[in-house]
């Protein structure tokens, strides 16, 4: 019972937080002008460049567009390296 009540309140609180999280993500992509297919293309090309220098699994390369503030949007590339 108590958990149900807490769950209710938790779900409630989440709606505002969820909106904030979704907005940050959407605006980051809008501002960078990177929609789905362009982002995929970029990811593929970056993976190919990295693979020329080090051994990686091209599928594991991840791109994140993150909006730090209005004028400050970051593109983060992460790529696990294969152990030699």
């Amino acid at each position: 019972m108590w958990n149900e009540i807490k769950g209710l309140f938790g779900a409630r609180r989440a709606s505002r937080e969820e909106a904030k999280g979704r907005l940050h993500l959407v605006l980051a992509h809008d501002r960078a002008g990177l929609d789905g297919s362009r982002l995929q293309d970029l990811r593929g090309e970056i993976a190919a460049v990295i693979a020329r220098y080090v051994e990686i699994d091209p599928e594991s390369v991840e791109l994140d567009v993150e909006r730090v503030s209005r004028d400050d949007t970051h593109l983060r590339v992460s790529s696990p390296l294969r152990a030699r």
Binding site: R12, R16, K20, H24, R70
Partner: peptide, 18 residues
């Protein structure tokens, strides 16, 4: 609704739009 956490507050909007 803001109080309930069901609506973005004016501060949220200001922060997001700077």
């Amino acid at each position: 609704m803001v109080k309930r956490g069901d609506m973005l507050s004016q501060d949220d909007v200001i922060e997001i739009l700077s």
